[in-house]
Amino acid sequence: MSTPTLKQIRFFVAAVDWGSLSRAAAHLNVAQPALSQQIAQLEATLRNELLTRTARGVRPTEAGQRFYRHARTILRQVDGAVADLTGPGPVIGRVAIGLPTSVATILAHPLLSTILRDYPGIRPELFESLSGYLHELIAQRRLELAILYRDRSAPGLTVQPILREELFLVTRAGAATPAAITMREVAELPLVMPSPTHTLRTMVEAAFAREGLSLTVVADVDSLPTMRRIAASGLAAAILPISGLSGLDEAQRPAMIRIVEPTITRPLGLCYAADQPLAGPAALVADLMVAEMRRLVESGAWGNAVLAEP
């Protein structure tokens, strides 16, 4: 039985990452027929169909998903071996990073600025999505790193706690806006919240349930900008961290009221696959992410967030 070549593996990974044979071919600077031929030879070697072709592009089959996880690890190990033997030099490589939307609003710009300015050999690939979906992408080896709302490692996932941020009631600004509001008072207000599967929603509902309370949710909205606009209009309130309002000018900012009796906080941690220790560009970017998050907290730019104990 023949063995897959590194070229075939790289071409297959690119096809999955880009979701399109034409976009993958353009990225690799090869003709699309040549890329298709290499992937066809790979499928023949493995005796499995790896990609499903559709009018909108390609997606991995169940066998393709399994092989993709191995392929990512193989390519990372090869790149690491080359870097080890060629000695010190500029750090070069792609790093796929996942950030929840509220975190991206405050972290993405300074993080990318540092990488692009100081490490031109690193090509960051930023994915912004729901925390639960980012966890799935780590398990599928589509991401090397992600910030998730976790402070403990789990099977298959290594977590480095970084900070905890407080959640606030977000509502229309007014002269009589109080500085604080109790959880019991919040329970009586109409709220827009992310859908029930969203990590923020489940975390807030659990906090209210511990106090024997339930939320009055009038709409499920999985869009941070939309939640902010609804809250600012006074149509309904929202529950968000300060980072969720990052980037808004004063004219657009809704009021943020501290929730007390008790307060609600959520953890943020740097996460990666447990069987895939960080090395090379991914390890460097991980250090940059932690350092930037610490800087934002220590400078006060991350609102009421506090650093996790080392």
Rank of each mutant, 00 (worst) to 15 (best):
M1S: 14
M1G: 09
T3L: 06
L6C: 01
D17G: 07
W18K: 15
S22K: 12
A24H: 12
H27N: 11
N29P: 00
P33C: 13
P33S: 13
S36C: 07
I39K: 06
A40S: 09
V58D: 11
Q65A: 12
P88L: 08
R94M: 08
R94K: 05
H109F: 08
T114N: 00
E125C: 08
E128S: 08
L130F: 09
G132V: 09
Q140P: 03
R150D: 14
P155K: 06
E166C: 11
L169S: 12
T171P: 01
A175G: 14
I181F: 03
T182E: 07
T182H: 01
E185Y: 03
A187F: 12
M193T: 00
V204S: 07
E205A: 11
A207V: 10
A207M: 09
A209G: 03
E211Y: 00
L215S: 09
D220W: 00
D222W: 05
S223A: 15
T226E: 12
R229W: 01
I230M: 14
A232R: 15
A238I: 06
I239M: 00
S246G: 13
S246M: 04
G247A: 05
D249Y: 04
D249F: 02
I257M: 03
R258G: 03
V260L: 01
Y272M: 03
A274I: 06
P277T: 01
P281V: 10
D287H: 13
A291R: 11
V297F: 05
S299D: 13
G300Q: 15
A305L: 02
